[in-house]
Design a protein around this nucleic acid. Structure first.
Length: 426
RNA sequence: GGAGGGAUGGCCGAGUGGAUGAAGGCGGCGGUCUUGAAAACCGCUUCUCCGAAAGGAGACGGGGGUUCGAAUCCCUCUCCCUCCGCCA
């Protein structure tokens, strides 16, 4: 959610931001409704003011001569007030609906562009491995090693599911532990959050407006399955006031993620690259507004560190305006090199959502002012970033460290947590 | 699933129809004292919306009702807690 005052005072900036994101919002209608709303609001408040005054008058004169005067007029006034309030309601409803569909504005430095084809590669890091054989696709290797089984998953669940088995399970736990240990050293608080959220929390994170079809809903209980623990981590401090001294407040969450993948029919249908259910370690940060750009850099730095630790070559990609979701003001991805596929594939993503989610969720902090003024409430900024999306990192490990004989070498940092084994074989 | 209790400011907690936006405490901010700090003492401190301002309105979990007037009475929904049952 944006600030209506900001929209009112900078309509062109908002229009420009929506254009850059490629989102069509009827701003003129919003401004018109806002104006009407304020007019009716003033009327209602005027009537209420009058009612209050008269009511006090009646109270003051109570003791005097029997039935107090003015009660009949009050009944009239009340009817009038009810009328005005009834008029206000649909206006308020439309106002909130329109406010809800205005996306966050992209930061000025976000490049122009319609979709992912116009994202900008910022840098490439690491040496791509060379092979004296033709590198295979990860699923071929994984099936050979019997560590990923999508066929049986299809039998019991449908397409876009998978069983991780044997060494891939150990790999998952090792990765989770590595991510949590690494991030705890940086002050992140580890969290295992709920994977089901109520409407208020899910809507507050801004993923039901556009992209709502991605979300699984448990209708009977009116709950939503998270697509990422970002959603439950961000909503954790809903309606709270944080202390300035506690910022930035950084969490590392581990959870299963659920995505309907509606609209991606035919895309990445094989294997576990794009599935309905996967596990992910995720970073989330609440910080002061002035510091969110730095915090964004910091989260990207953590992501790169985690990828470098594994020794996987990658590139950093700056999202263009058209490829940002509703809540993001800025977003950068990491794409890992996948030798089997012969291309870079997205494994990480970090976004600065500025105060967009904080406004919707009402997450504020008490800012210490100098002098006698004391303190002031302000909205925090929220940021999120992938630590490890387990499935995709397993893919990257298999593809990058595959051997001619179909085995996979284990990155040094993972050997210990995997019980000292050097490679995955049969 | 059954029975009961509860939801008030940043937090705890009083308040059962009228000047209460809300006692008291904690916390926070400022000050006195001190070499400095702590303690003690004094003062200030709810938030949101409308308005250029003066000022006005709203908010005691959400929604509705009764009343001239509701934190306070009634209805309803949600959430939390306790006990019993079931259960990983």
């Amino acid at each position: 959610m944006l600030d209506i005052k900001f929209i009112r005072e900078h309509p062109d900036e908002v229009r420009e931001g929506c254009r850059k994101k490629g989102v069509d919002v009827d701003l003129d209608r919003l401004l018109e409704v806002d104006e009407g709303r304020r007019k009716v609001l003033m009327e209602v408040e005027g009537l209420r003011s009058q009612q209050k005054r008269m009511s006090k008058e009646i109270y003051r004169k109570k003791g005097e001569s029997g039935q107090p005067a003015g009660i009949d007029e009050m009944r009239d006034l009340k009817a009038q007030l009810k009328d005005a309030e009834k008029q206000l309601r649909p206006i308020e409803d439309e106002f909130h609906t329109l406010m809800g569909i205005v996306p966050n504005l992209p930061l000025p430095e976000v490049p122009e562009g319609r979709d992912e084809t116009e994202n900008v590669v910022v840098r490439e890091v690491g040496q791509r491995p060379t092979y004296d054989f033709t590198p295979r696709d990860y699923m071929k290797i994984a099936e050979g090693l019997d560590i990923i089984d999508t066929k049986r998953a299809a039998k019991v669940s449908g397409s876009r599911f998978g069983y991780l088995k044997g060494a891939s399970v150990l790999l998952e736990f090792a990765l989770v532990r590595l991510a949590i240990d690494t991030l705890m050293e940086e002050g992140f608080i580890p969290v295992i959050p709920p994977v089901m959220l109520n409407y208020k929390a899910m809507d507050g994170m801004g993923y039901l407006t556009r992209g709502g079809s991605e979300v699984y809903q448990v209708e009977k209980d009116d709950l939503y399955l998270v697509g990422t623990s970002e959603q439950s981590l961000g909503a954790m401090h809903m309606s709270e006031v944080l202390d300035q001294g506690d910022l930035p407040r950084r969490y590392v969450g581990f959870s299963t993620c659920f995505r309907r993948e509606a609209g991606s029919y035919g895309k990445d249908t094989k294997g576990i690259l794009r599935v309905h259910q996967f596990d992910k370690v995720e970073m989330f940060s609440f910080c002061e507004p002035e510091k969110s750009r730095d915090e964004h850099d910091f989260i990207l730095e953590m992501e790169e560190k985690l990828v470098r630790m594994l020794g996987i070559p990658y590139r950093v990609v700056q999202m263009c305006g058209g490829d940002l979701g509703d809540p993001a003001a800025d977003k950068r991805d990491i794409e890992c090199w996948m030798p089997g596929m012969g291309e870079y594939r997205e494994t990480h993503s970090c976004s600065n959502c500025t105060d967009f989610q904080a406004r919707r969720l009402n997450v504020r902090y008490r800012a210490r002012g100098q002098g006698s003024g004391g303190t002031k409430l302000r909205f925090v900024h929220t940021l999120n970033g992938t630590a490890y999306a387990i499935g995709r990192i397993i893919i990257a490990i298999i593809e990058n460290f595959q051997q001619a004989d179909g085995t996979v070498l284990i990155p040094d940092v993972l050997k210990g947590p995997m019980g000292g084994i050097e490679r995955i074989g049969r």
